[in-house]
Design a binder for these strands. Structure first.
Lengths: 231, 231
DNA sequence: TGGTTGTGGACTGTTGACAATCGACAACCA
DNA sequence: TGGTTGTCGATTGTCAACAGTCCACAACCA
């Protein structure tokens, strides 16, 4: 890339973005949360995180606020932050919210799909072939749903969904750890369903995509028993 | 109230809550935003707010982050905060999101209504009689919808809705300022509809309340033309 | 012994100061 | 003149320190 060309680079590749320390701290906390390094209900003293990561308390504070918005951290009445325990009701809530958000997003995405989105989804669809394990598939799945939310072009809808994303990841890890997942679902079958949904989106069949997504989330909600077994 | 009684006061009345400066700053900014004292797109330098309110930049930072979550403030690439301009697309988005959230909330609220909630809604219903002006009614309306979201007992749903609340207030003020509101709607009629919705909730008719709310939001969405006229 | 009263430690809330970044505008030069 | 290079002011990012609050535990007393 030539650096003496004065025309600005507008598209994503090779653009320098300054990432604040707060963002870095948030990323690190997210990682730790998903990795299960922080137990449910464990306190997260600002000072500890700060010294551990070699920053001051300011950025840590901001990161914690960010994570509170994502629903994985909560502040007690005295302002101390702690890992928000996962409860069965949370799962139920997340289920309801997904049911409200994602079918709508699917409809809008199908309606508003541009040629670029089109190509994007074709690529995703192709990537599905390489999902030989549940682990790979789950990674693909998150990317897929995120793509739908992005394609819907609704900032607020996406923001609401984002707050669910991290929590779903935590559930997934927790369930995998207990090996209580994959409750009667076959991977090839699951992949088939996703292929179907992706096809509807690509074809721009808005109403059908919405219905399919509603059903899709419903299936996901069937994990609830596994969740109950854990809680 | 006796202060030498060791039993803690759990219910709302007379309980001392420490409000951080950040919360106070956020409240003040919210007020200014709704009052129209901050123009669309106007920068909000931390230092200005801090000196104006006699606090340091820390709490102001946190307040601005809070308002960004509420969707009324945005940060540019360099971290500077500014008043997020209201656009027609925003209104459309808010409409879609309300349509996804509130009917669901109404259904859940009707299902889960406790005797206390019951009394609460009865009180609200009575308060409707004193809404002689649109202004009073709008205040009542916000309280009403908030009560529904609270009664649904879904943290995340409520959180998603809260981010819309402030923005709706901004729209309302903006439209009132332009006198482009009340587009063919009569106040007594509007009050009648609300009375009907409230009755369904109180009677616990979940499905009917959900449908009514969907229609209700749909009517609200008819303000869109007025919004377009403004934008 | 049972309840009250210090006292220390662990945190958070808030602040003021310093460093870094960026736009605007002036100075400079080929 | 057109483009490049300083420089200044405005604003945010980050930090270290201080003050306030609360819990836990010990000391104390009736």
């Amino acid at each position: 890339m030539r650096l003496d060309d004065p025309t600005p680079v507008s598209s994503p590749p090779r653009r320098l973005v300054r990432q604040s320390l707060a963002d870095g701290v948030a990323d690190e906390l997210r990682r730790a949360l998903i990795a299960g390094e922080l137990a449910d209900g464990a306190p997260i003293p600002e000072v500890h995180v700060a010294t551990r990561l070699g920053v001051s308390r300011g950025p840590v504070r901001e990161a914690l606020i960010e994570l509170e918005r994502d629903g994985v951290v909560e502040f007690d009445s005295r302002g101390r932050s702690l890992v928000r325990p996962l409860t069965e009701e949370d799962f139920e809530e997340i289920f309801q919210l997904r049911l409200a958000i994602e079918p709508l997003a699917a409809r809008l995405a199908a309606q508003r799909m541009t040629p670029e989105d089109h190509a994007n989804f074709e690529g995703l669809l192709a990537g599905l072939d390489e999902c030989g394990t549940w682990e790979k598939f789950h990674a693909w799945d998150v990317e897929f749903h995120e793509a739908i939310l992005l394609t819907a072009h609704q900032r607020r809808l996406h923001a609401a969904w984002r707050t669910l994303k991290l929590q779903m990841a935590r559930w997934l890890m927790e369930l995998q750890r207990r090996r209580s997942l994959v409750t009667g679902h076959k991977l090839p079958q699951t992949i088939k369903y996703h292929r179907r949904l992706a096809a509807l989106l690509i074809e721009g069949k808005a109403k059908a995509a919405e219905t399919e997504m509603r059903w899709h989330i419903g299936v996901w909600g069937e994990w609830l028993p596994a969740v109950k077994a854990k809680a």
